[in-house]
């Protein structure tokens, strides 16, 4: 090593080697890793917690009875374990909710992303997100004490019961509108402006550009939003417990009272099911089933997204 011709500038290090260890960097890396692990660990923990009681449940109640009969009443004597009524109720309320939330949520997203001026968007989007922050118990009572009476009044021929799947489903739908709208809007806002310009330059109107270019280009993000909304709807508890009721009847009629899987769990879990008893184990069996159903829906939609998405860039 030859000596430098000129003296090094003041403050410059003599060597390129690290002058002091950077503990801060290591610490931050560790904190970030732990944060990431917490959510994974929680998921794993839930699965582990579900598996054991579920296996115990099926050692006492046969698969055939669980999936093969249509009477549900684990808390009655004699108990009945045909799970279909609560599966049907869950799917039906989820379907009603999606029928409400997807059109309204998508329309709101298109409005916000394509039509609203920046000023309107700045006001509207937070307001929409406030809707997501309304406690679901409020939606539940709103459904029970306002929506159901109004529907009874306007459509007496429906024969609505005091608690029914229709009102519950409608309000679950309202509850998930912000999820669909806000996430879809994010996906649409991420579509490069060049695509819009390309469409306008061909003489397409704003509506056609939105529907035929922006929405397809944002499709994967929109589907992701809908999946998340479906999962939230299927697992929603408070609204369906309050407005949908706890009666497990095997029916498709949305005017009837029906208990969803989540409502059953809430009901059984808040009762006096003692640890290790059959009602207690039933909670976990239903929980596992709900978990598998949502997981399966996520998987199917992820595959759909893979197949149909339009990649830009």
């Amino acid at each position: 090593m030859s000596a430098p011709v000129r003296a090094a500038a003041p403050g410059s290090p003599k060597s390129l080697a690290r002058s002091r260890p950077r503990y801060g960097e290591q610490l931050i890396k560790a904190i970030l890793l732990i944060s990431a692990l917490v959510s994974i660990a929680t998921t794993v923990g839930i699965i582990v917690a579900l598996v054991e009681p579920t296996i115990e449940f099926f050692s006492e109640v046969s698969f055939g009875e669980f999936f093969g009969s249509t009477t549900w009443g684990p808390l009655f004597s004699p108990p009945a374990f045909g799970v279909w009524p609560i599966i049907v109720a869950t799917l039906e309320i989820t379907l009603i909710a999606i029928l409400v939330a997807v059109p309204l949520g998508l329309a709101a997203a298109i409005f916000l992303s394509e039509y609203a001026t920046p000023r309107v968007r700045k006001i509207f989007k937070p307001v929409l997100e406030v809707l997501a922050g309304v406690p679901t118990v409020v939606f539940g009572f709103f459904a029970l004490t306002f929506v159901t009476p109004v529907l009874k009044d306007w459509f007496p021929f429906l024969g609505l019961e005091a608690k029914n799947a229709l009102s519950a489903g409608l309000l679950v739908g309202v509850m998930i509108i912000p999820i669909v709208a806000s996430l879809s809007e994010d996906a649409m806002a991420a579509v490069p402006n060049g695509l819009r310009e390309g469409s306008y330059a061909l003489g397409a109107s704003k509506m056609l550009t939105s529907v035929r270019v922006v929405v397809p280009a944002a499709f994967s993000g929109i589907v992701a939003a809908v999946i998340l909304a479906i999962s939230r709807a299927a697992g929603e508890t408070m609204i369906v417990a309050i407005a949908g009721g706890f009666k497990s009847v095997f029916t498709l009629n949305p005017a009837d009272e029906m208990a969803t899987m989540a409502a059953f769990i809430a009901q059984a879990g808040s009762g006096d099911a003692s640890v290790g008893s059959i009602p207690y184990k039933t909670i976990f069996a239903v929980g596992s089933l709900l978990f598998i159903m949502t997981f399966f829906m996520n998987y199917v939609s992820a595959r759909l997204v893979q197949k149909y998405r339009e990649v830009y860039e």
Partner: peptide
């Protein structure tokens, strides 16, 4: 814009099939 077409700086084909890209204009019109 239907009578006066435009080509942009960065190629901006729609993320669709080649056929559908060309058919897009006639279809929306």
């Amino acid at each position: 814009r239907r009578r006066i077409g435009m080509v942009f700086q960065k190629p901006n084909p729609f993320p669709k099939a080649i056929y559908d890209n060309v058919a897009y204009g006639p279809r929306v019109n």
